[in-house]
C-alpha cells in the first residue's frame, strides 16, 4: 500500500500554556491542492510550522514521506512559503536562490539556471541581481514563492500565498499552482475562501486547535438535497424568496448576505432547478451577478446551520 504523504497522529502543541493544537490526527495523500482554513489564532501557522520543522514536535507523531519534519532526507522534496520570512539583505536575490538550489543538490550552473527559472515563473526575472530590501511587499512575497518552487518539490506548503498581492499576481500564483498540480501537492493556508474554493478539492478546517476535513466535491452526493447560490443585483429579498420558494422541489431559500440567495432543492423532484430559477429571474426582470451550483466555501465551512430563512 502506498504510504500517505503526511501522517499526523495526536499532534498537540502549546503556546505559553495555551493549546494551539489539540490531538490533531489526519493523513494526506499526494494530489490536488488542499486548503487549510480556520479563524485567526486557530493554529494554522503552528501546524504549518510543525510540518516544515520550524517548531519542534513536543507531543504526538508527525511524518512527511515517512521522515520527521526538518530531516535532511526531505531537502528538495518538501518546500514552503513561510509567513513573514524575508531573505538576507546582504546578498542579491539571485545569489540566495542559487545558494538554496545548491543546498538542494544542484551544481553551481544548474542552481543559477534554476534561480532564473523560478523567478521567471513569478514574473520577476529582472530582479535576479536586486537586493531584497529594494522589493515591495508584493514582490517580496513573489520572490518567497519562487524560492518554494526551487527544484520542483513534491510537496509545498503555502502560508497566505496571495495576501497582499494585486489581482494580476494573485491570478499568476493561482495559475502556477494549477499548472504544477497534481505533480506537486500544495497545502494552502488562506483566509481567501473564494481562492481556495477555486483551487482545492479538499479542505482542512482548524478551529481552536481541533481539525476536521471536508471533501468539496463529495458533499452533494451524500445529501438528498442540493444547493444553488445566486448573487443578485440590487433587489428586494422578500420578493425573491416569495417567487422562488413556491417553485416545485425547493426545500428552503436563505439569504446569508444582502443580495445573495441559497436555494436548497430536491433533485429527485426537480432535476432542472437551475433552469427554473433562471426563468423566474428573467420573468421578473431581475438582474443577477453570479449563478453557481452548490454553496460557497464560506457558507459550507462557517455558516452551514446559521443562514436558514
Amino acid at each position: 500500500m502506498k504510504m500517505p504523504m503526511i501522517q499526523c497522529h495526536n499532534l498537540s502543541h502549546l503556546y505559553a500554556g495555551k493549546a494551539a493544537l489539540s490531538n490533531v490526527t489526519f493523513e494526506l495523500g499526494a494530489g490536488e491542492p488542499i486548503g487549510l482554513v480556520g479563524p485567526n489564532g486557530a493554529g494554522k501557522t503552528t501546524l504549518l510550522s510543525l510540518l516544515c520543522g520550524f517548531l519542534p514536535v513536543t507531543a504526538g507523531a508527525l511524518t512527511l514521506f515517512g521522515h520527521k519534519p526538518g530531516a535532511s532526507a526531505l531537502s528538495g522534496r518538501v518546500s514552503a512559503l513561510p509567513q513573514d520570512a524575508r531573505l538576507d539583505p546582504a546578498f542579491t536575490i539571485g545569489e540566495q536562490l542559487s545558494f538554496y538550489a545548491r543546498l538542494q543538490g544542484l551544481s553551481a550552473k544548474q542552481a543559477t539556471n534554476e534561480a532564473i527559472r523560478v523567478l521567471e515563473a513569478v514574473a520577476l526575472k529582472d530582479l535576479f541581481k536586486a537586493k531584497p530590501d529594494t522589493l515591495s511587499h508584493g514582490m517580496a512575497k513573489r520572490v518567497a514563492i519562487a524560492q518554494a518552487l526551487i527544484g520542483s518539490p513534491e510537496l509545498i506548503f503555502l502560508d497566505e500565498p496571495t495576501a497582499g498581492l494585486d489581482p494580476v499576481n494573485t491570478r499568476n500564483i493561482r495559475s502556477i499552482i494549477t499548472e504544477l498540480s497534481p505533480a506537486t501537492t500544495f497545502i494552502i493556508s488562506s483566509h481567501d475562501l473564494a481562492e481556495l474554493g477555486r483551487l482545492c478539492q479538499q479542505i482542512l478546517l482548524l478551529d481552536n486547535g481541533v481539525m476536521s476535513t471536508m471533501q468539496l466535491n463529495a458533499s452533494g452526493e451524500s445529501s438528498p438535497t442540493r444547493f444553488i447560490t445566486v448573487q443578485m443585483e440590487s433587489c428586494t429579498a422578500v420578493d425573491v424568496i416569495a417567487k422562488i420558494k413556491p417553485l416545485k422541489g425547493v426545500v428552503r431559500v436563505s439569504t446569508p448576505q444582502k443580495n445573495e440567495f441559497i436555494v436548497e432543492y430536491n433533485p429527485t423532484i426537480e432535476a432542472n432547478m437551475d433552469l427554473k430559477i433562471l426563468t423566474c429571474i428573467i420573468d421578473n426582470n431581475w438582474q443577477y451577478r453570479q449563478f453557481s451550483q452548490g454553496k460557497t466555501l464560506e457558507e459550507k465551512l462557517f455558516f452551514e446551520e446559521d443562514s436558514e430563512s
Binding site: 516544515c52 520543522g53 520550524f54 526538518g70 531537502s75 528538495g76 518538501v78 518546500s79 514552503a80 513561510p82 513573514d84 520570512a85 524575508r86 531573505l87 538576507d88 540566495q96 538554496y100 543546498l103 538542494q104 518567497a144 524560492q147
Partner: peptide, 9 residues
C-alpha cells in the same frame, strides 16, 4: 525568518 528558508533544505 531567513533561517526558515535554510532549514527547509
Amino acid at each position: 525568518g531567513t533561517l526558515r528558508f535554510l532549514c527547509l533544505r
